[in-house]
């Protein structure tokens, strides 16, 4: 019988990433519900900083997979190393944070281990041993519940902030080295340089008011509708990723997980659906107004004011009213 919950730890600059602390929190809660222990795995050339950081958490064990070939992340290196650990420890559940790194290797690892993965979950529930996973579908419009009925290991990746890392229980954890059998010829990816993207001209983090535009604006020509409102309000223009991808505005105006994180006094979104990758960049805004014609648009879930309607009808009138009110 497979036993225990394994959490794979991700780290940057010798520190455990927050998304992994959240994954550990989720694992502790699931462990309590299932009566299962939680253990963690760290992969690096030298794991000691991360295992040191985690040794004060309530964990059954921390495996240190130290190997020079794991200094840089590669999908092959991680998959081979973790497969060896999973075969040895035989966990019932493996949990990772749904980071860019997990997107890259976790599904492959699950398959290599004869299991399957449910990605980007926002909640895990265990009821007398049966696992139910909740995740967003249709870009956040709806939630879906999935039950796990596989024979193999259940792999779960958790969306950022699915669990609160502040609730991670403290305790003690023993650290154990795990020798990985890895040959450089097995790693097919050659990692070259890393570099930062283009420098930003606009610092939306400093904006008081942001008028944010999404694909609901339909065409680049319609940008002026939003610009008129922004200039009436003294606001900066922010945007969703597709709008930046299409080059309507510069990439430095992108708000979200791969753009800027903002928290203005007012975030007024026009024709943005509210996909999680956008929302993480603006949900801490003090006041959120969203204009969207779809009553199911997920942006409304986090808005203070939800305006269900056609932005082309409402925004010009709003601009005039703002001018009159000032």
């Amino acid at each position: 019988m497979s036993q225990g919950i394994l959490v794979i730890i991700e780290h940057t600059d010798a520190k455990v990433n927050r998304i992994s602390l959240e994954a550990l929190t989720g694992a502790q809660k699931l462990g309590a519900e299932m009566g299962q222990s939680v253990f963690a795995a760290v992969l690096a050339d030298d794991c000691s900083a991360m295992t040191g950081e985690l040794s004060s958490k309530k964990l059954d064990k921390i495996y240190a997979l130290s190997n020079p070939l794991l200094a840089d992340y590669t999908p092959d290196g991680y998959t081979i190393a973790l497969q060896q650990l999973i075969e040895k420890t035989d966990p019932a559940v493996v949990i990772v944070g749904y980071s860019y790194q997990a997107r890259d290797y976790a599904a492959k690892l699950a398959l290599r281990c004869g299991g399957a993965m449910m990605s980007d979950c926002i909640a895990i529930q265990a009821d007398s041993g049966n696992i139910t996973l909740t995740r967003q579908v249709f870009a956040g419009k709806f939630n879906a519940d999935y039950s796990f009925s596989g024979d193999g290991c259940c792999f779960i990746s958790l969306q950022a902030a699915a669990y609160n890392a502040d609730e991670l229980e403290a305790g003690t954890a023993a650290v154990e080295g795990f020798a990985v059998n890895l040959d450089s010829r097995e790693i097919r990816t050659t990692v070259l340089e890393s570099f930062e993207g283009t420098k930003k001209d606009v610092d939306l983090a400093a904006s008081d008011i942001i008028v944010a535009i999404g694909r609901g604006l339909k065409e680049e020509e319609n940008l002026e509708i939003a610009e008129a409102l922004a200039s009436a309000m003294g606001a900066d223009i922010g945007a969703s990723r597709p709008v930046c991808d299409d080059g309507w505005v510069g990439a430095d105006r992108q708000v979200g997980s791969s753009g800027q994180t903002v928290s203005p006094k007012l975030y007024l979104s026009l024709g943005i659906s509210g996909a999680i990758q956008h929302v993480v960049g603006m949900k801490s805004s003090k006041y959120i107004v969203a204009i969207n014609k779809d009553p199911h648009a997920p942006i409304f879930d986090i808005a203070d004011v939800a305006v269900v309607g056609d932005l082309f009808e409402i925004v010009p009138k709003l601009t005039e009213a703002v001018k009159a009110a000032k």
Binding site: G115, A116, M118, T132, L133, Q136, V137, G140, K141, F142, N143, A144, D145, Y146, S147, F148, S149, G150, D151, G152, C154, H296, P298, F300, D301, I302, A303, D304, V305, A306, V307, V308, G309
Partner: peptide, 19 residues
Amino acid sequence: AFKLEKIYTPVKSKETTVF
């Protein structure tokens, strides 16, 4: 290994005024 049990509108966590 995973069965879709149901899909539903998520419960709002924030109080929202709707216009």
